[in-house]
Amino acid sequence: MAVVTSARAVGRPRRLDRSRAAGVLLVLPSLLYLTVFVFIPVIKAFATSFTVRDRDDAGNYTYRVGLDNYNQLIASDTLRSNVIFTVFIAVASVSIVFVIAYVIALALRFGRGPSARFLGRIYIVPLFIPSVIASYAMITFLANHGFVDGILQAIGLPDGVFPKIVFDWKGIVITQVWLSLPFMTVLLSSVLLEISDSLIESARDVGASSWQIFRHIVLPLSAPGALIGVTFIFLGVIGGFTVPYLLGPNAPQMLGVSMVYYMTNYFEPYIASTQAVAIFLLSLVAAVYYVRQQFKREIR
């Protein structure tokens, strides 16, 4: 007697397969895009940085794999000071914007009254100003014989005393702070919102002053979320081009600017790529932390 066994009876339920297939299909286009336009360039950047181009006696180019580019990065005074300059600006910008944004976020969370409300409307403005424009505005604002210089001289500052801010690291930092303020404030605001009122009230109830509440309760509880914002801004500043290009000094340069110069002016894609990888390695810790934390917060 033949026993008919349905193939379906032992297979996986159809519904799940369809869901998986649909899932793959829907994600495929974006994945394809990222592979071609992000992953491949990144891998190429790494590969290029390890490619050394030599010229032989006949004037022909030969290529080999080596660390020469990296050696040049470390040995060259210019390039080395670029690296230090880049890190310094990133750290300075992030620290300053963190403090200012935190004050705003605290005011938004705990403040009442017109000042707090006003802050709530104004901090978001830089978000809508393209970085090119912001940079230019800062140039006219902070240049020697610019607006601030004018105001200060009108109240008595002698000419020539105003420090060099534009085409100097100070200009870059101030502009980056200006541009990063909305993002940092929004992030800190949402982090502070997660701290319930009763946690604050219970601290007041046991006798803590506002400063003590901030130091022992608010700050530690806001730290993990705040760090995500800090790393994101850090990554943005360290790989920035527009602001240092328009507002930075000729030397030292931030790596983003020097990278583009090596690429387009000196036609040296190898050193350019090496600098790209250098920036990446500099921000690796921040990048890893950012990805891990973002992941933990979002994926449940």
Binding site: P41, V42, F241
Partner: peptide, 16 residues
Amino acid sequence: LFLIPNAFPRIGLYVS
């Protein structure tokens, strides 16, 4: 993987 574009400095990506 979708976070990588943000983790790698943008200008480096553009140059590559």
